[in-house]
Write a protein that binds this DNA or RNA. Structure first.
Lengths: 364, 364
DNA sequence: CTGAAAGCGCTTACAG
DNA sequence: CTGAAAGCGCTTACAG
């Protein structure tokens, strides 16, 4: 038997060789129906003799409507692992949990041009998770909705909350309390939005930021307020980048009465603030206290450890994956007219607070 | 039109609504055959009216034999991005290039247990690339071979050389020359193997290391020899980890006549050697010169920049992806009885040498 | 415990 | 420029 012949061995051929019906041969491999031991043996022997490696995934998929593929739609998570270890962790967790359940993970870029559009249309998947929805997500979201498959969008999108429970507010409340207890009264808040308009980076009214921010960022700010913070200024970061944090620092430290503490909603912004503070000869935390969010490794901070909230990306990915698998199971049950189990409760991702070394009493 | 109805709109339904044959409707979407403008319009209108989003990827795949999916089989590349940024870069390059060509990338774990075995069998792909083949690759390799799809295995496997040209030897020769020119005569070599036996970490004869090492590592060592290095000792690292580098350092520095320079075949080993040297109060490069390979970010080295060879993971991934796409195209042409184009020449990945700050004249 | 048949949603020679 | 039909490789009611 040559390799070339090998390729086209089909279930039908095996069934014929074993002298049974295709359905019987099929059941030998899927195990969905009892088959007499001798019959099964005959089929297996025929398969071995013909070099049949089991039912083709493609045929199964068409017949069963299940591709055993889940898409993860994300933009360049991989390019700069240093800038986004969190999303990488999420991807890792998703992939592991899906693999464990027999689902492969398809990496797909968001739809930004003809190539990505064609790709999205031509790739198979039973469900999809969008991670770090930063670019090209208007069309992508519209498209994913139109595919009518289970879909979870993370990073502050509405569906995130139904997939993984995160009490951001409780965590940031604790963090803010530490700052208040240190004696600060002139506290500023720097939150972010995914707003794409110009001037996104600027001082804004608190209400505006709360209205524009993704749900999770809004919750983080709620935590600050709940702790009793009355911000002397609020900055809107237009991107989750170190530069945006630097802009925030410049604007806030230029105020006539600059804050003695800045509460951010992302570590990377806090890192940018440290950059500018040092540029200006200020020392953190002696001259400026600072909090972050994510507990992500940051370059260029030396020995400084940020006061922050830890978000375990891999754990988050695993939780989200389990949610997706439950959605997939329900869909299958619904299709087959089986009894539909209630969705399991949303799992909670613990968000431990790290005190770090960036909170100190205000100077003077 | 409800969502539920929506889901089952098929090409056949659209064709019926437009009053044309399925084949005609199909050609309107694929563009593989000319269709009269009015006819095409009628079909498109019918599609729009029915909410048809274009041919199902699944049906196309079964009929055409193309899933537009390439698998990347790799073990936990994502878990510790810090320890393997190179593989991450490769994955990124693969993914981008495949996406560009209309292929999705499926992340698959190597076969190590029942779950991964089931997964590999049930997932569809037209071709596969294995990256960082560290664990469970005996069964994985056997399985991938049995799928009879184009397959490229990286990281020192035979097929890597046919997919991307890397002149490791030329690069390491230059590096070794720098060490020789600095005046070193007592030079040791630390190379690695994927050997899994106990005692893998040990001093060995040069010939043994050359025989056991993956092809790319062997080439790197060849480069050292070509430069004129006559090693006073050769160490075999059994794993590509910092610990293994530390073991190498201990063994080599404990020699009665310790080397004044150590040439490694991976940055991470050089980092481990720095750890041990410092532990012992030695200064790099004053007391010990050192070279690496990969130019990967390393933690805990302070200001020390390694003398090393840069391997751009993303560029490598892109080159490999283009190779895979060419293999896929050829396969298709072969199947359809078309003229088979010769494979394009293997692309070369440049391997720039960085002098860094870890080469100095020997002490004394 | 087993079989014959329909069907999953398309593409692609073949024929005109 | 278009159509009718076979076929891609399976699974799954239905029937016995």
């Amino acid at each position: 038997m040559t390799v070339a012949e090998h390729r086209n061995v089909t279930l039908a051929a095996v069934a014929a060789a074993a002298g049974v019906a295709k359905s019987t041969a099929s059941h030998v491999f899927t195990g969905k129906r009892a088959v007499a031991p001798e019959t099964a043996d005959r089929v297996r022997r025929a398969a071995a003799a013909l070099g049949y490696d089991g039912p083709s995934a493609l045929g199964r998929a068409l017949a069963s409507g299940r591709t055993h593929l889940v898409a993860v739609m994300t933009y360049a998570v991989l390019e700069d692992p240093d800038t986004d270890p969190l999303s990488l962790g999420v991807l890792d967790g998703l992939q592991r949990e899906f693999a464990h359940a027999g689902y492969g993970t398809v990496l797909l870029p968001p739809i930004t041009d003809e190539a990505s559009r064609t790709l999205a249309h031509s790739v198979l998947f039973d469900g999809v998770v969008s991670v770090r929805r930063l670019v090209g997500f208007e069309e992508t979201d519209a498209y994913l909705a139109s595919r009518h498959v289970p879909w979870i969008a993370l990073d502050g999108a509405m569906t995130e909350e139904s997939a993984v429970a995160m009490d951001d507010a409780a965590a940031t409340e604790r963090l803010a309390r530490l700052v208040l207890e240190a004696g600060h009264t002139r506290i500023a808040i720097a939150g972010y939005t995914f707003a794409t308009h110009e001037d996104a980076d600027s001082i804004v009214p608190l209400e505006l930021l709360l209205a524009e921010a993704p749900a999770n960022v809004a919750r983080r700010i709620e935590g600050f307020l709940r702790a009793g913070v009355e911000p002397v200024a609020v900055y809107r970061c237009g991107a989750v980048t170190r530069e945006s944090g630097q802009h925030a620092a410049r604007a806030l430290l230029d105020l006539p009465q600059p804050p003695t503490a800045i509460l951010t909603t992302a570590d990377i912004h806090a890192a940018g603030i440290v950059d500018v503070a040092r540029e200006r000869g200020l020392s953190v935390p002696r001259d400026l206290s600072l909090t972050g969010f994510d507990a992500v490794p940051l370059a260029g901070l030396g020995d400084l450890e940020l006061a922050t909230v830890e978000q375990n990306g891999r754990a988050k990915g695993e939780i989200v994956a389990r949610r997706m698998l439950a959605m997939l199971d329900r869909e299958l049950a619904e299709r087959d007219g089986l009894e539909i189990e209630p969705m399991p409760a949303v799992e909670e991702l613990p968000l431990p607070v790290h005190r770090g070394g960036t909170i100190a009493p205000p100077a003077g």
